[in-house]
Design a protein around this nucleic acid. Structure first.
Lengths: 132, 132
DNA sequence: CTTGGGTGTAAGAAGAATCTGACACGTGGC
DNA sequence: GCCACGTGTCAGATTCTTCTTACACCCAAG
């Protein structure tokens, strides 16, 4: 394979842990149909705002969704979220590669802010079936 | 092509939850280098056998590894594990599709036996960058 | 100034996952 | 018989995640 930038162990771990939850899968699914703001989304998928807030934080920390605080015409501050066009390939060798760069801090701090600095592109995959 | 059999919500959830754990990632990584039996693997990656046993169960329940109880030449029963050649594509639309078939039982029963019957192919991926 | 809708966050309860230690079983060799 | 090495599983402690409740703040409209 050509080196499609295997994701960092910590990064992949965050992504998998974030997506490995039914509520967060549904949140991503809901946002995939269009951006939305927190309170409304909470109403639509039927969960409390604080809870949704936490889940969104987790998803954002994993880089799967992005949120932006915007001002409505009425001056209300609303936080809109939308899915980021992520694309990960999940195969044994990807996991093996990622596991190589696993730090121990990823184990504990699953939901947290991204380190300041490099967060350029987690987009990968595209590989068609090339004979290895 | 097209329609690459989106995994079931429950199935994808199990896979992601299984892989979203540093220890299990390392286990998959270790097994990717070759099959191994439980006790030896436990020694190599430095974790207790009961613990490894549990993690392997989880991975097997997710269909990521397969184990077979074999008899060594000395008559000892050894359980060998190896990775199954899984391949999942992780994109917003895959997640959205999967979320549609999410049952509530998946939330609770993360580690369990696979249902008797259909477990033919969870292989997916191949999609190149298609403009949506 | 009170109501309604938006935001964020913190404390603590409830529940689930993780991990350890001990046990039971089977076989080969000293 | 006993030890070494393999298997499996259980009970309980610990730790992490999830979830609720309650609070604080801002702005517009009545």
């Amino acid at each position: 394979m050509s080196a499609i930038e295997t994701p960092t162990g910590d990064e992949l771990l965050k992504v998998l842990a974030a997506l490995g939850n039914p509520h967060r899968m549904r949140i991503v699914a809901a946002l995939a149909e269009g951006r939305n703001y927190v309170s409304r989304l909470a109403r639509e998928i039927g969960m409390s705002r604080p809870l949704l807030h936490m889940h969104l934080q987790r998803l954002e920390a994993a880089g799967l969704v992005v949120g932006s605080l915007e001002l409505s015409d009425s001056g209300k501050a609303m936080k809109f979220f939308e899915v980021s066009p992520f694309a990960y390939a999940l195969t044994p060798q990807v996991v093996a590669e990622a596991a190589r760069t696993l730090t121990d801090q990823a184990a504990k701090t699953a939901g947290e802010q991204h380190e300041a600095g490099p967060e350029p592109d987690e987009q990968v995959s595209d590989e068609k079936e090339r004979a290895t």
